[in-house]
Each structure stands twice: as structure tokens, then as C-alpha cells.
Nucleic acid binder design. Structure first.
Lengths: 237, 237
DNA sequence: TTCAAAAGAATGGTTAAACCATTACAATTT
DNA sequence: AAATTGTAATGGTTTAACCATTCTTTTGAA
């Protein structure tokens, strides 16, 4: 009927108090918590216990601890960093492979492009086209500029995610790429022809977005990411 | 040219040593680490420093600490729990709203159903149909059984995710629902007619999966989740 | 003989005081 | 004015002791 009233873990209570204060907005990003010696007095706990609580909050990404005079626990803005780290752990545990993540990316990019086609304003299309022009230039310069080309490719996908105005997709873009780029850098090799193929892909997607062709944007984006994945798989052999 | 040699944080070194040991598989889920007093000798650190390291590992979800004789740090299997917690934090920070999450779910369920249509074996279809039959029975019994109906609905979506054999989708199913069900329980009210509509939806999706109608499965699943979302939005007013 | 209660032991949880290492800032010297 | 040095505040670490929880063993009464 009832569950244990208290795990007799004082530091958890401290974690919750500080976390709630931060989430309630009483402590804003950039602000500094009182020093450990002050906090332990305020909370009536020992310094060791307080430090365990701060360690947990740091791990959650809610604070960052700086050394020296004027240092202390600085409140952080929430970000996707923690989700990234958790996902990276899953990958390192080999519960998730590159193939799984790439396949997931196909679906996400397809959906993002479809939503972008629904919602893009003329200003959004303009921004996409100027990124596309950059991609064009790197593609023309050949495989010495592969790194730059891939970077612009990434920015275009991020721009599409931003057009959806859904933070889930924006965070996810960062999360997926933080965990997938490592492989790209190690294994991906594109010749000029492949870069130009990709440039054409991107142009078609952006065209579809401009025409508000929801279904076309989705299919083109899926095919584009699939092609990217195939480059990778061929290089892994 | 060089980066700081050491962040002078001994506990981080301890965290890494233990984490690597776990990830390398030298410590398997269920096994218990040596006691704090033994570990501090092995690692040549103080107990306080060791405890800060254990706190971090606990927060990462790699260990769980049990009290009393025979207690200690039990190695955990990795799970989506940490990702869930990070996402829940983003939601509490109001960086992500229910609307954002629901919209994301539309895309995910669509893609999952499409992949399931590609990959479902006859055994998979059989399992889906038996879950569907359960849904049918709860739908017939009326709104007293809404909770049970929603539960079966959830199991069907999970089954579809499992058919993809992609752990990203399986984890994501749990992550999304852990963060969305709370709203369902608070705001979702379905009359018998709405339950039957949903039952019909689910039947159509499973039909499409059986026919390997990839595009149909996607569209039906998207529409199904959208309808679910609309029930919610209407109740929030 | 059985079994419940009590004692014992091992473990994590907490406290306290002291010292070290890093850093920002002020004071001093060049 | 610039460079150096000193100072103080902050987090990082150590140590030793005690408390609280939980499993195991022993004890003692029915």
C-alpha cells in the first residue's frame, strides 16, 4: 500500500531541492550557487554529502563546477548533451549499431523534410538555397573538400530541422550526428562524382520543399540518406 | 599544442576505470563490485572520492547501489532509462511540449509501421492479430475499459517497433511513452465510439502490414496517432 | 525439534576537520 | 604601464569515526 518513505539518502533530497529550484527558474543559467561551505550550512548537511549531490547534478547537466576564486557550481542551460551521452553509451555497449542508427536517420530526415515542405517560409527557402550554393562550390572543387561538403550537407539537414520548429527534431539532429560523424570521418570517402550526386539530391529536396511537395520531399530525403549510408557500407568492406 | 594534463579530478579517473571495465564486459550485469572499503584500497583513493565516482556511475545508470550485508554496487544492464530521464528534464524545462512530442510520435509510428510492413513474418502478424483481438474486446466493453484499451494499443505499437528489429525504435517507443503517458492518464477520455474508431485504425494498420503495403501502413499509422493527438487536444480545452 | 527473536557482522550513508591545488584579484615592483 | 608577487576564496582530497540497513548466525522458548 505504501512505499518506503525515504531511502535515507540525504544527498538525493539535496539534489531534488537544488534541481527544483533550477527548474522553477529561481536559478537561471549562468548564475552561481553559493559556495560548498555556505550551502552545507544552509542545507544542514556535511560537505561530503553536499558534494555527492553536486556530482549528481553535474552528471545530469544541470550545473558545471568551476575551480578557484569566483568559481563554484554554475547553472547550465539544458541541452541535448546528456541524451547524446546516454545514446553514446548504448552504442558503446553495442546495443545499437551504426546500421541501426543510419536506418533511424533515414526515417527522421524523411519526416523532417516533409514537415519542412509544409512549413517553409520564403525566407527559409532562401536560406536553404544559399547553403545549397555553398555545397555546389565544394562539390565542384573535388574530393579535397569532402569534409567541407559534408559539413554543409549537415547544415542543410539542420536547417530543415529548424524549419519544423519542433525542438525534438533539432535536438535529434545533433544527437544523431554527434554519434554518427565519428564513423563518417573514419570511413566515408566520396569522389567528386559522388559529391555531385549528393548535391543534386539536396537540390531536389530543396526544390520539393519550395514547391510544398510534402510527399516528394520525404521520398527524396529518404533516398538521399540511404545513398549516404551506402557510401559508408561500401567503404567498410 | 598540449592540453591540460589532468583535470585534477581523481574521481573522474575512477569513473572511467570502472566504466571501461563494465563496458569491456569484464563486469557483467548482476555482478557486485567490491565493497567501498576494498575498492578504495585497490584504487588508492579516499572513500569520499570513491563515493563521488560511484555516484556518477549510478547516475549514468551503470550501477545501482544496495544497502546492507551483501549489498554494494550492482552492475546494471544499459537501458533507455537515462535517455528517458534526460528527455523528461527537457520537457520539465518546457523546452519540449506535449505537442512537439506528439508530432514527433506521428512520424516515428509511421516509419515504424512502414518498416514493419517490409519485415513482418507470419508469426509477427499472428501476434499482432491476437493483440488486436484483445483491443476489440476492450473496445466492446466500453469506456470503463479505456485504460486497458490504451494499454493494448501501446503493446501493438511496441510489437510493431520490435518487428523492425531496430533497437533505436524499441527504445524510443519506451522513451516517448514514459514521457507522454502521464498526459494520457490525466487528460485522455475516450467514449466507446472513439475506442471503436481506434480499433478500426489498428486493424487497418495490421492489414496493411500483412499485405506488405509499406506506404499504406505508414499513412494509416500517421493518421491513427494524429487522431489520438486530437482526442488529447480537445480534452485540454 | 521447530521457529521466532535477538545478537553479530558487513555494507553503504553521514559527519567532521584538516590540508592541498587552482584561480581571480589586489598589491607591489620594475 | 606592465610584469610580478602575494593573498584569499573556492573546489578537491584525505582521514577516522560513527550511524543505519540488511543478511546471517545464534539463542532460547514453545
Amino acid at each position: 500500500m505504501f512505499k518506503a518513505a525515504k531511502q535515507s539518502r540525504i544527498f538525493q533530497d539535496v539534489v531534488e531541492q537544488i534541481q527544483e529550484t533550477i527548474i522553477a527558474g529561481k536559478l537561471k543559467p549562468g548564475e552561481i550557487l553559493p559556495s560548498e561551505r555556505e550551502l552545507k550550512e544552509m542545507l544542514q548537511v556535511s560537505r561530503g554529502t553536499l558534494r555527492e549531490a553536486l556530482r549528481v547534478l553535474e552528471q545530469k547537466g544541470l550545473i558545471e563546477i568551476k575551480l578557484g576564486v569566483g568559481g563554484g557550481a554554475v547553472v547550465q542551460d539544458v541541452s541535448y548533451d546528456q541524451i547524446n551521452e546516454s545514446l553514446a553509451l548504448l552504442i558503446r555497449y553495442q546495443k545499437v549499431s551504426l546500421r541501426h542508427l543510419s536506418e533511424f536517420r533515414v526515417g527522421v530526415e524523411g519526416r523532417v523534410s516533409a514537415l519542412a515542405a509544409e512549413r517553409a517560409t520564403p525566407a527559409d527557402v532562401f536560406r536553404l538555397k544559399s547553403l545549397l550554393e555553398q555545397a555546389h562550390q565544394f562539390a565542384e572543387k573535388g574530393s579535397d573538400f569532402q569534409k567541407e561538403f559534408v559539413e554543409v550537407d549537415k547544415q542543410i539537414h539542420l536547417a530543415l530541422a529548424e524549419i519544423t520548429e519542433n525542438p525534438v527534431y533539432i535536438s535529434l539532429h545533433h544527437t544523431v550526428h554527434d554519434n554518427i560523424d565519428h564513423y563518417y570521418e573514419a570511413f566515408l570517402v566520396m569522389k567528386q562524382r559522388e559529391m555531385e550526386e549528393n548535391y543534386t539530391d539536396l537540390g531536389s529536396i530543396i526544390d520539393a520543399v519550395e514547391r510544398k511537395d510534402v510527399d516528394g520531399a520525404r521520398q527524396l530525403a529518404e533516398a538521399h540518406v540511404l545513398r549516404f549510408n551506402h557510401y559508408m557500407e561500401n567503404r567498410e568492406k
